[in-house]
């Protein structure tokens, strides 16, 4: 069905592939780092604080985990376009725009998964933290630290979504060769052009990266669990 030889695959790894992989990693890791900085405290805050409308906030947060990527791309595009509210920054069709879009996409995912994890920890430690008279910020810090291995999984889920996402970065990045082309947009383009060796090579790299990240986090988590128990 596919006429792709090993030699062609190996040749495909030369040239632009490394640059595309490097840009993909830079964009996705930056986006998820931003999502973690915003989403983890936000998720922990919703888990710990009882406020009016909290159940609506939780429902919204959970619903936004499945935010349509193309819709996010469109909203970010409109915001960053010349006539949009953030048009003055001139970010459209740059890697920065792709980072913004992926951060918007992954923040609700990281926040929702963190909320669930921290809420479970709050059930376990809530009375102890109240007894210790810890203020809100300290409670969030202690709980995030206590669930750090589970929260790492939320980070990983965000990274997985960011790295495998194509629609958003295509819209706001433009898939410009050598500038905003990442693995997923390159795979889509090369497949449509019929250049299957390059598409398959990029697919293999993408899969290997996702597997390696998962393996790394699982290993760290396993070692830490054996060390700390629980």
């Amino acid at each position: 069905m596919f006429d792709v030889s090993i030699e062609e695959l190996i040749r495909s790894f030369e040239g632009d592939v490394l640059a595309i992989v490097a840009l993909s990693l830079r964009v996705s890791l930056s986006a998820v780092a931003i999502a973690a900085v915003i989403g983890m405290p936000l998720g922990a805050f919703v888990a710990v604080v009882r406020f009016p409308g909290r159940s609506i906030a939780v429902t919204l947060l959970n619903a936004m985990m499945g935010l349509p990527a193309v819709l996010v791309g469109l909203v970010v595009y409109l915001s960053l376009s010349r006539s949009g509210p953030l048009g003055g920054f001139g970010l459209l069709f740059t890697p920065a725009a792709m980072i913004v879009a992926q951060a918007v996409l992954t923040t609700p995912l990281v926040a929702a998964l963190t909320r669930q994890t921290v809420e479970d920890a709050w059930r376990q430690h809530g009375e102890t933290l109240r007894s210790l008279r810890l203020p809100l910020a300290s409670r969030v810090r202690v709980l995030l630290w206590d669930c750090r291995f589970s929260v790492a999984a939320a980070f990983l889920a965000g990274l997985g979504r960011a790295m495998s996402e194509v629609g958003t970065v295509m819209i706001v990045g433009g898939n410009i060769d050598g500038f905003t082309r990442v693995m997923t947009t390159a795979i889509a383009l090369e497949t449509s052009k019929g250049d299957l060796p390059l598409a398959v090579a990029l697919g293999i790299v993408l899969m290997a990266l996702v597997l390696a990240l998962n393996a790394l986090v699982s290993t760290v988590r396993g070692v830490a669990m054996r060390r700390h128990g629980g």
Binding site: Q124, H125, E127, T128, S131, V142, W145, D146, C147, R148, F149, H228, G229, G230
Partner: peptide, 9 residues
């Protein structure tokens, strides 16, 4: 507490 919770550390 009767069953004191301990943090992972």
């Amino acid at each position: 507490f009767q069953h004191s919770s301990m943090f992972r550390g």
